[in-house]
C-alpha cells in the first residue's frame, strides 16, 4: 500500500521468489506468503481499511498464510498499540504490545548487530528506523533482543521484526521466509 515494498521485492526475488504487490482484496488470492513492509502504519492501516482489505488480510493470516512483518508491519499485527493515532486499529494477530517510535524520532534511528535464534553464522545487521518498541510479549516466541527488549518475535507462521532486513543487504531472513512459503504448496 505504502512503504518500503520495493526493497522487499528485490530481496525476495534475490531469494528466488516471484512477487506481486498487494493493493486490493483480489490481490490476496493465491499467495504462498505475504510481507507487511515498513512504512507509516497509520497510512497503511487507513488505506487497507478504505478498500476493505483489513478483514480478508486478517482472515488469510489467521488461516496460516506465512507472514513476514517488518517495523510498521509489526505494528499492524500487534494486539496493543501505544502512541499511535487515537483510533489506530491493529489486526490483533500477535500477542505483543508495541509503542510506536518507541526508540525516539529519526535522529535516534540506529544500526546494531543482532543475534537471531535459528540463524547460523554471524550476527544480523539490524537497521532500526523510527522503530517500534516491544513493551510486552504474551503468546509469542522471542527470537532476538537488543538492549533487553524483544526486536524479533515468531508465532506460528508469522515472523515480526522491529528492524529492516530489506535494507540490510543480508538475505538470510528473506531466504528463510521464502523456504517457509514454498513449503505451503
Amino acid at each position: 500500500m505504502q512503504g518500503a515494498f520495493a526493497e522487499h521485492i528485490k530481496a525476495l526475488e534475490a531469494a528466488g521468489a516471484r512477487t506481486r504487490l498487494v493493493r486490493s482484496r483480489e490481490d490476496l488470492d493465491g499467495l504462498d506468503g505475504i510481507v507487511l513492509p515498513g512504512g507509516e502504519s497509520t497510512t497503511m492501516t487507513m488505506l487497507m481499511e478504505r478498500v476493505g482489505m483489513l478483514a480478508p488480510l486478517r482472515q488469510a493470516i489467521e488461516r496460516g498464510l506465512p507472514t513476514l512483518a517488518t517495523c510498521a508491519g509489526m505494528i499492524v499485527l500487534a494486539r496493543e498499540i501505544t502512541d499511535g493515532m487515537a483510533d489506530q486499529k491493529g489486526l490483533d494477530l500477535l500477542d505483543i504490545a508495541v509503542r510506536r517510535n518507541g526508540y525516539g524520532r529519526q535522529v535516534d534511528s540506529f544500526e546494531a548487530p543482532l543475534q537471531i535464534d535459528g540463524l547460523d553464522g554471524k550476527t544480523f545487521p539490524g537497521v532500526f528506523i523510527r522503530a517500534p518498541l516491544v513493551e510486552r510479549t504474551g503468546d509469542v516466541e522471542v527470537i532476538a533482543r537488543h538492549d533487553g527488549h524483544p526486536v524479533a518475535v515468531r508465532h506460528g507462521r508469522i515472523t515480526a521484526l522491529g528492524f529492516h532486513p530489506e535494507l540490510s543487504g543480508d538475505l538470510r531472513l528473506h531466504r528463510e521466509f521464502v523456504r517457509l512459503a514454498a513449503g505451503q504448496r
Binding site: A6, G38, C71, A112, R130, H164
Partner: peptide
Amino acid sequence: RGNGEVKGSFKVKAGLAQMLKGG
C-alpha cells in the same frame, strides 16, 4: 555507542525515505 549501536549513519538517513515511498 557502547551496545554496538550506530546512530545517524547514511543507511538510517536514507532508510527513512524508503519508508515514505508510495506516500
